[in-house]
Amino acid sequence: MLAEAHLYLGVALAGLVSFLSPCVLPLVPPYLSYLGGTTFEQLSDEKGLERAVWRRVVLASVFFVLGFSTVFIALGASASLIGQVIQTWRAELSFAAGLVIILFGLHFLGVLRIPFLLTEKRYQ
């Protein structure tokens, strides 16, 4: 349990260090102004940031992070699921892949003609 907490802390620190890197940090104000629908001048005003603008920027940033996280979590979960399915059906998929390779080889040699491999479609 403690090792897992250290792992999460390490990942969070790595993310923070990459965020604070010289090639990312200068991009933050323009991204925030774009996400919040404000101008850079409104974000850097000497009087301070208006409460409505601040709320809009924070809310847009939170939803951006949630959407971004959702997409990558879904991609990771689906890749894991596909990997499990491939592992379960590994023998059958190996046989099918071998059969396809043999058929393509015979087609390449001209022994077997596969009509849909001989067609060409072009879009003008």
Results as ranks from 00 to 15, higher is better:
Pro29Ile: 05
Val85Arg: 11
Leu117Asn: 04
Ala96Trp: 15
Ala52Lys: 03
Phe19Cys: 03
Ala5Val: 09
Tyr34Asn: 09
Val71Ile: 15
Gly10Met: 09
Gly37Cys: 07
Ile114Lys: 02
Phe108Ala: 11
Trp54Phe: 09
Tyr34Cys: 15
Phe116Tyr: 10
Leu9Tyr: 11
Phe19Ile: 04
Pro29Trp: 05
Val58Tyr: 01
Phe104Ser: 07
Glu46Cys: 09
Pro22Arg: 07
Val65Ala: 11
Thr38Met: 05
Leu112Trp: 07
Ser33Lys: 06
Leu16Glu: 08
Val24Tyr: 13
Gly98Val: 04
Ile73Arg: 09
Ala91Tyr: 06
Leu66Asn: 05
Leu2Lys: 13
Gly36Ser: 08
Glu50Lys: 08
Gly48Asn: 09
Val17Gly: 00
Phe108Gln: 13
Leu118Asp: 13
Pro22Ile: 03
Ser33Arg: 04
Arg56Gln: 07
Phe95Val: 13
Asp45Arg: 08
His107Lys: 05
Glu92Ser: 08
Ser61Phe: 02
Arg122Met: 02
Phe64Ser: 02
Ser44Ile: 02
Ala60Arg: 03
Ile114Thr: 07
Leu75Gln: 12
Gly105Ser: 05
Phe108His: 15
Leu109Gly: 07
Leu93Pro: 03
Ser61Asn: 03
Ser80Ile: 09
Val65Tyr: 03
Ile82Trp: 11
Val65Trp: 06
Met1Asn: 15
Asp45Thr: 03
Gly76Ile: 00
Lys121Asn: 07
His107Trp: 06
Val53Asp: 00
Ala77Thr: 15
Gln42Pro: 01
Val111Thr: 14
Arg113Leu: 03
Thr70Gln: 09
Ser33Ile: 01
Gln124His: 10
Leu103Lys: 04
Phe104Thr: 04
Glu46Pro: 12
Arg56Val: 00
Leu27Asn: 09
Leu7Ser: 07
Val62Pro: 00
Phe68Asp: 10
Lys121Glu: 09
Gly105Asp: 03
Pro30Glu: 02
Leu106Trp: 14
Pro115Gln: 06
Leu27Gln: 14
Ile114Gln: 02
Leu13Glu: 09
Thr70Ala: 14
Ala79Pro: 00
Val28Glu: 08
Pro29Gly: 08
Val58Ser: 04
Ser33Gly: 05
Tyr123Ile: 06
Leu35Gly: 01
Leu9Thr: 04
Val85Glu: 10
Val53His: 00
Leu75Arg: 15
Ser94Gly: 06
Phe68Trp: 12
Arg122Tyr: 02
Leu81Ala: 11
Arg55Ser: 05
His107Val: 02
Ser94His: 04
Gln84His: 10
Leu106Thr: 02
Val11Met: 10
Gln124Gly: 11
Leu2Asp: 14
Gly110Val: 03
Ile101Asp: 11
Ala5Pro: 02
Ile86Thr: 03
Met1Arg: 11
Ala14Ser: 15
Val71Ala: 14
Pro26Ala: 12
Phe108Met: 10
Ile86Trp: 02
Gln42His: 07
Leu25Ser: 12
Ile86Ala: 05
Ala14His: 06
Ile73Pro: 01
Gly67Lys: 06
Lys121Trp: 13
Arg90Trp: 12
Ser33Pro: 01
Gly67Ser: 11
Leu13Tyr: 12
Ile102Pro: 01
Val62Thr: 11
Leu112Gly: 01
Gly15Pro: 04
Ala14Asn: 10
Gly15Arg: 08
Leu75Tyr: 05
Leu49Asn: 00
Ala79Tyr: 07
Thr119Ala: 04
Glu120Ala: 07
Val58Phe: 01
Phe19His: 08
Ile82Arg: 15
Leu25His: 06
Arg56Thr: 04
Pro115Thr: 06
Gly10Arg: 12
Leu43Thr: 02
Ala77Glu: 12
Gly48Glu: 03
Leu27Thr: 13
